[in-house]
Amino acid sequence: MKKGTLKQILLITDGCSNKGEDPSMVAALIAQQGIAVNVIGVLEDDQSEQPIGLEEVEEVALAGEGVSQIVYQQALSQTVQTVTKQAMTQTLQGVVNQELKQILGPNQTMESLPPEQRGEVMEVVEDLGETSNVEVLVLVDTSASMQNKLPTVKEALIDLSISMNARIGKNKFAIYTFPGKRKALNKVIDWTNKLDSISSVFPKLTSGGITPTGPALKEAMHQFGKMKLTRSMNRNDESIEEAGF
């Protein structure tokens, strides 16, 4: 099987969107482009029950064919890496199921195989998860209520890079925050393979109460295309230089 690149958006937020397009609709659109949307909802330490705003978290992830989880701050590090890995497995399982359908018929998925054969298929999924390349765009909600959680978010992202870089496959990360100044997004770190360089803390408070999750997600989707564009431009440059010699 050809080893492709798994693309994911990881949205870290603590409340519901209140401006622009419906984030679930945008997430469904993004999933169509082969990019999974994962959502982590961060609770306040004193919140004992799931607040209303966080219902959106699960819905967006479902629409975006990703994984969602609602956690307290202190569990964020471990959650960020499990959610990312789970989403990878989920995507790969989807791919493998597609192949199985082609080979065995339309109603065949991994679950309909007897346990013995399922083991072998799962090994293939695991191999792919370990070796495929991954691109994760992290989208952090920096609206007022998230401010005191940002140091924890930073730590969790460094931790994510430790986990991902232990894999055999290559990784690329980018970090964006939203809302930005007069824009949907604010770039913190452009595509890079290591995140331990996030010494620069997240930008200071940018807004008063608006959370345009939908528009931010849409803008984030376009960042994947941009990476390809710059890469191919670099390649063109090289070929021109070579031709010059």
């Binding site: 590090s77 471990q78 370990e130 931790d159 430790i162 986990s163 991902m164 870089n165 232990a166 894999r167 055999i168």
Partner: peptide, 22 residues
């Protein structure tokens, strides 16, 4: 040679900044 499948923070050397998660 692969990345650790499952770990617990307190026991994980990555968390203690004492090495990789390989």
């Amino acid at each position: 040679g692969r990345s650790i499948k499952e770990y617990t923070e307190f026991y994980d050397r990555g968390y203690w900044q004492a090495g990789t998660r390989k």
